[in-house]
């Protein structure tokens, strides 16, 4: 602004400047994710930091390569590409080979975002597109979970597998709380779920820190509060109903809310302004749909976790929801059928 600085500023309406810009919103999300990310790095060791950095590099290189040179400064400057990488990394297992993390970052940005025309034009959440691709491509590695490490500087040997190769050593997978419930019918204590001292993806375990970050985003009005609230209420109610039939087999409401990717998905991925409905009523429908699908997939689906597919499915329904919930134009009657 200083280089132009006109004496008389002439510009078209709207004349009120809004403080909320894309880089500002992205910065808020970075701040909101920081506690859970740092906890994940502390909990799962230096391996998780390597995975996060590699994924971010993969996302940013892809964005840089597929953006026309004259737009690069603008597009790279809003930090959304790196944020996609971070969000994807938080959903990955800490022992993932780094070349897969790089590939995931590249796919999430390339197929999830750049291909549709960049930020604002994508239908599906880019980070989840990357995760869905990785899960369908490398199903075994993506569900090999490493627990907490003894020493912070332990690097899992599987991290360092050569590109296109699998690691020579067999990793011992530990069951996540969701897997324990689904396959062994043993529930994990809510306390450790809240603190995040369980096994799982490297940034999704600490429900409490993610919840704090989400509340920060809601207070800053970066996300629509209706979406996470609708997801939480629906999922809790649904699991309360089925839990009353068989308390051992089906998850309790608290378990549903604090386990797996629920917090990360409901607070940081579902309310992504680009891929969620614009209207307040639409946001509630969207959230209810995700809440129902999460419990449905977790309880009756083949996989222990369903947050990712629930959000992707409702992303696909977003244009339809937006069209169905268009508010009535003031002063006109209801449109005739």
């Amino acid at each position: 602004m200083s280089e132009q600085d006109p004496r008389l500023l002439l510009q078209p309406a709207p004349l009120l400047q809004q403080g909320m810009t894309t880089p500002q919103a992205m910065k808020d999300v970075w701040i909101a994710l920081a506690p859970a990310t740092l906890f994940g790095i502390w909990h799962f060791g230096i391996s998780s930091l390597l995975v996060i950095i590699t994924t971010i590099i993969g996302a940013m290189i892809t964005e840089w390569a597929f953006t026309p040179p004259e737009k690069r400064g603008h597009v790279m400057g809003d930090w959304s590409g790196a944020l996609t990488g971070l969000l994807l990394a938080l959903t990955l297992p800490p022992g993932l080979p780094l070349w897969m993390a790089f590939l995931g970052g590249a796919v999430s940005t390339g197929l999830g975002k750049v291909m549709w025309g960049g930020l604002g034009n994508n239908i599906f959440n880019p980070a989840l597109v990357g995760r869905a691709f990785l899960l369908a491509t490398f199903p075994i590695v993506m569900t090999t979970w490493h627990g907490s490490v003894d020493s912070f500087f332990t690097i899992h040997p599987s991290n360092l597998a050569m590109p296109l190769m699998q690691s020579a050593t067999d990793a011992v997978s530990q069951a996540t709380p969701l897997g324990l419930l689904k396959f062994q019918q043993s529930a994990t204590a809510t306390g450790s779920l809240l603190l995040g001292t369980t096994t799982g993806s490297l940034g999704e375990t600490s429900a409490l820190l993610l919840l704090l970050g989400g509340i920060f985003l809601i207070l800053r009005r970066d996300i629509d509060w209706r979406i996470p609230v609708a997801i939480f209420i629906t999922a809790a109610l649904f699991s309360a109903i089925i839990n009353s039939f068989d308390a051992v087999k089906y998850p309790s409401p608290l378990f549903t809310l604090f386990s797996g990717g629920m917090m990360l998905g409901a607070l940081f991925m579902a309310p992504d302004p680009v891929t969620s409905p614009l209207t307040p009523r639409g946001a509630i429908i969207f959230g209810v749909g995700i809440g129902l699908l999460v419990v449905l997939i977790r309880v009756w689906g083949g996989l222990p976790e369903g947050v990712m597919y629930a959000i992707l499915l409702m992303n696909a329904a977003t244009p339809l929801i937006d069209r169905a919930t268009q508010p009535r134009v003031f002063g006109r009657g209801r449109p005739r059928e």
Binding site: P97, F133, A136, T137, F138, A161, L164, M165, Q166, A168
Partner: peptide, 11 residues
């Protein structure tokens, strides 16, 4: 690629 190739199941 030899024995240790990690197949891309999705393909």
């Amino acid at each position: 690629f030899g024995d240790n190739f990690e197949p891309w199941i999705i393909m």
